[in-house]
Design a protein around this nucleic acid. Sequence first.
DNA 1: TTATTGAAATTCATATAGGAAATCACCCCC
DNA 2: GGGGGTGATTTCCTATATGAATTTCAATAA
Lengths: 240, 240
Amino acid sequence: MPPRQSSDISRGKVAVTDVYASMRASILEGEIAPGTRINIDAVARSLGVSQTPVREVLQRLEGDNLVVYSPGRGYSTTPLLGLPELRSLFEFRLLVEPWAARAAAVDRLANPAAALERELASFRDTMKADKDLRQDLVAHDTRFHDTILAASGNPVVRHAFAQTHCHLHTFRLYPADVDGAITVAEHSAVREAIEACDPEQAEAAMTMHIRNSFDRFAQAFAGELAPLEDTGAPRKRIIK
Amino acid sequence: MPPRQSSDISRGKVAVTDVYASMRASILEGEIAPGTRINIDAVARSLGVSQTPVREVLQRLEGDNLVVYSPGRGYSTTPLLGLPELRSLFEFRLLVEPWAARAAAVDRLANPAAALERELASFRDTMKADKDLRQDLVAHDTRFHDTILAASGNPVVRHAFAQTHCHLHTFRLYPADVDGAITVAEHSAVREAIEACDPEQAEAAMTMHIRNSFDRFAQAFAGELAPLEDTGAPRKRIIK
DNA sequence: TTATTGAAATTCATATAGGAAATCACCCCC
DNA sequence: GGGGGTGATTTCCTATATGAATTTCAATAA
């Protein structure tokens, strides 16, 4: 089940589609502070729809781990990922993605090398036009990894990976722009190994890519969040 | 996110909780044939609630892969798992569960051996009272595997595994009773390796358990579905 | 100044109703 | 006899309203 079939957009549930896009963007862009409670009435009125589609969207966003539901309190936005959560996420990626890269590096029609090359070429073009890369980089990264997962031939693994919404959450963490060149280089290495039908190399390249990616995020953590820990009021006493 | 926190039951969304349990049971028991369209009106009236909570429940069931939504047609029950889907599911389990068993076999407080022993003892008691084991076996299996996943210390992996709802779907496939003794024996082997803090052995035992489990299911497939293939009209010509 | 209690107001969860789209049957036409 | 079009019915999707629970704010007492 890839995030959402575009079939939802075609017909039926028109309001839900719009509201979903709007609310997801609001959360990802940080317009709603992490941990804030969401007023269904206010959202419904501000978007010019009734409460019903808003409730349905909140249900869906709960599946994306962008909001949480508390039984008497309604919905709140989830706090940003901490370093432990980020580590858990990338440990999971290390479990499934190198396996998928290995599975995709076969001499069959399922080999996704051509699709990956198209994706990379398309993104290289986008990079030249120096618009805000952030959105495009995340979109490219999402498609690149999903293509490999799809080529693994295991829809359960692909779905489980998609459900983590790792790109969604990392994007939410770091709206700051990052260097797309490094990512492209690592992606290229993965693609070449897959094209060469070299499972060992594909697995290794993917493993390296994920480890490096995590390291980059972790460094950003150290740089950005260390000062925050200082500002936090030190807990004087645990008891009483 | 384990299936559903009991916090939902405490307060708030009373109707939703009841409707969810009722509809899930109906689908799992096969009272609604796989692939059938679900009439929201009819369900709401038969359960004595309005359409609103029914719609919310259907959203949730879609997340469980028990129903699918088609844009103009509403919701239908998903077809039963085929052998390829079952294989994909167990391949995924082979990716994460042996890893989790290895991670759980450590000399720390996180070691789940005691909890596993309690779970096994409890189920052995249940087995003596020869009620319908089906429900209880699935419940035990769910708890046993989730305990190990939880002890792995990686909530992302645990959540991804829980989201597959593998026990839900396998139960739906085979309402026929199976022998619980084999399962208990294999579970015990896993538990002992974890208690002994032997990662290699724990990983091996879990791998063996999953492979055996799949083989048992696959055999049931061969026995049940082979005649069905015979009845299917053989495709004489592909073209025209 | 702080903690507590009460009531008012907000907000959630569900029920009910109405407009729109799709399905199905029937009929007409080829 | 077969295929396409039209109307009625069903069903879905959204809107509005109501009861219940919780939160908040203010006032009072310690």
